[in-house]
Write a protein that binds this DNA or RNA. Structure first.
Length: 150
DNA sequence: GCCAACGTTGGC
DNA sequence: GCCAACGTTGGC
C-alpha cells in the first residue's frame, strides 16, 4: 500500500465537502507529474487531504483511493473550465481517481508544524510545493498521524 | 496582493 | 533542441 498527499483549495473543495459527499472524483489535474502519480495509485491507498491557500493551511484529514485512474471527462467538455482540446476521448491526456472520506482531523496539521518537525523535512510538500498530487512515505504518513491533536 | 518557483508554449 | 516569454501555484 502506498501513501499520497493531494491538495485542494478549501474554497473550491474542502474536507467538509468530502465528508458530506463521502466520495468524489478528483478532476482538473493538469500537470503531468501529478497525473503520473494518480496513475500509480491503487485501491485502498491512503491520501492526506491538504488545504492550500487557506487559513490555516495544512493537512485537514484522510481519504482513501476507491477507484484507480480513469480518463478525466472534464477535459472533453468544452463548457468545463478544465477543458483541454489536446485530450482526446480515444487517447486521453488527463486522468482522475475516486476517493472516499475517511476522517477529518479535529485540528488541521499545519504547514508550520510540518516544517518544524525534523522527521518531515524531506516531504515533497516542502521540496516541491507546487506539485498537487505527491507521494508520501510510510514513515512520513505515520509521523503526520502522530501530530494529530485532539 | 505580491512575487518566487516552476511548468508550458512557441519562435527560432 | 534551446530558451525567452508567459501563465499558474501557493506561501507569505
Amino acid at each position: 500500500m502506498k501513501y499520497w498527499l493531494m491538495k485542494s483549495e478549501p474554497d473550491v473543495y474542502s474536507i467538509n465537502m468530502l465528508e458530506k459527499d463521502q466520495v468524489t472524483y478528483w478532476d482538473g489535474v493538469r500537470n503531468y507529474q501529478a497525473r503520473n502519480n494518480m496513475k500509480t495509485m491503487k485501491v485502498n491507498d491512503l491520501v492526506l487531504f491538504y488545504h492550500s491557500n487557506a487559513k490555516p493551511k495544512g493537512i485537514a484529514g484522510i481519504a482513501k483511493v476507491i477507484k484507480e485512474a480513469y480518463p478525466d471527462f472534464t477535459a472533453f467538455d468544452k463548457k468545463n473550465k478544465y477543458f483541454d482540446p489536446k485530450s482526446k476521448t480515444e487517447n486521453p491526456t488527463w486522468y482522475m481517481v475516486d476517493i472516499q472520506f475517511i476522517k477529518k482531523f479535529k485540528k488541521v496539521i499545519t504547514l508550520e508544524e510540518i516544517k518544524n518537525n525534523n522527521k518531515l523535512n524531506d516531504m515533497v510538500l516542502l521540496k516541491n510545493s507546487r506539485l498537487s498530487v505527491q507521494p508520501v512515505t510510510k514513515d512520513e504518513f505515520e509521523k503526520i498521524l502522530e501530530l494529530e491533536h485532539d
